[in-house]
Design a protein around this nucleic acid. Sequence first.
DNA 1: CGCCGATGTCAACAAGCGTTGGCCTACAGT
DNA 2: ACTGTAGGCCAACGCTTGTTGACATCGGCG
Lengths: 197, 197
Amino acid sequence: MTEPASRPRRSDATRAGILRAARERFAADGYDRATIRAIAADARIDPSLVMRYYGSKEGLFAAAAEFDLHLPDLTRVPAHRLGETLARHFLHRWEADGTLVALLRAAATNPGAADRMRGIFADQLATAVSRTGADPGTAARRAGLVASQMLGLALTRYVIRLPPVVELDPDELAEWVGPTIQRYLTQPFTPPQASAG
Amino acid sequence: MTEPASRPRRSDATRAGILRAARERFAADGYDRATIRAIAADARIDPSLVMRYYGSKEGLFAAAAEFDLHLPDLTRVPAHRLGETLARHFLHRWEADGTLVALLRAAATNPGAADRMRGIFADQLATAVSRTGADPGTAARRAGLVASQMLGLALTRYVIRLPPVVELDPDELAEWVGPTIQRYLTQPFTPPQASAG
DNA sequence: CGCCGATGTCAACAAGCGTTGGCCTACAGT
DNA sequence: ACTGTAGGCCAACGCTTGTTGACATCGGCG
């Protein structure tokens, strides 16, 4: 299946350039406002080449929005540090790679992007959470709650840029958010609703 | 300033219809994909009327994205129930009015919408938080953390539609998220980093 | 050299967009 | 009944978009 590296095609650099420009544009502008023409201009090639190599704008986005959370093996993390570990990992990952921001911006208006976002969190986050030893019946919900906080952080910090969230540095954010994640992962379901009356 | 109600203009119904259709379209499609033509079709009028009444697409959005969180007076809420109260209020408010979702979707790609979002949280949420008796020096950061969780919930539930977050009902969500908000509002800053070293 | 596929450019297409100005219609004031 | 005006529709504009197909250029191979 994997072709032998015998023929490093001369166009590989062009392909890669298009992909890099596409990621930047999608991250900065979202799916609709990022135009093929602008991406091609950034990569200093003709727009029609984008079509040749990626078929369509949708195809280009699909290639540009490939994203791996690179989640660590949570079975090797002490149970009481799961929250902090995850929070730190997410922040570190996002600061280094804008792809998630591109995907997030696009997911707000593009159904395909939203679908891919759901896939990432089902395949990667929910899977990792289910390996923490959490009750399998609750793992998906716990992963959803974790996603709500971590994506909310990405949204307010990188997309909407709420000043207080932008100004806090990653370490401070992890200290605040870590315990939240920890509780979503470990607190028993149906919490004491004692005072209900 | 406020004109006497002497002249209930015949076009008021049209204006309102445009606004209603605009809110729905902006909420469903975001700023770019929501077209004036589609909004006009929903309201069963001609696209040019939208221009007559709201000047431009930007103007229409500005009118459609007017949003009041209607936050309760937090000084009247017992200190230990602030988190639960706020979480419940947000969820209730969003289930009833799609305007915030419209603003959220648009804010992902439209700078003006993001600006308005920042304004809402500075003017309404940060103000309310600062009245809880929190240290004025930390109130803005606390409000930012609250926003990160609540907007993350809105994002995953209404925009990306992560299944586990969609399936939980508002009461369950409030039980999970309430304590998070409570901690963001009340936990002292520079939390004990005892175990370091 | 002469061929040929891979690589890249150019010009144009049809469609959709926000926006504009002219024209028709109905109603209030006299 | 006549007229002015507010409310509404229609057709078109200029522009940008994704996408396409014809044409140029390069680089290895006979």
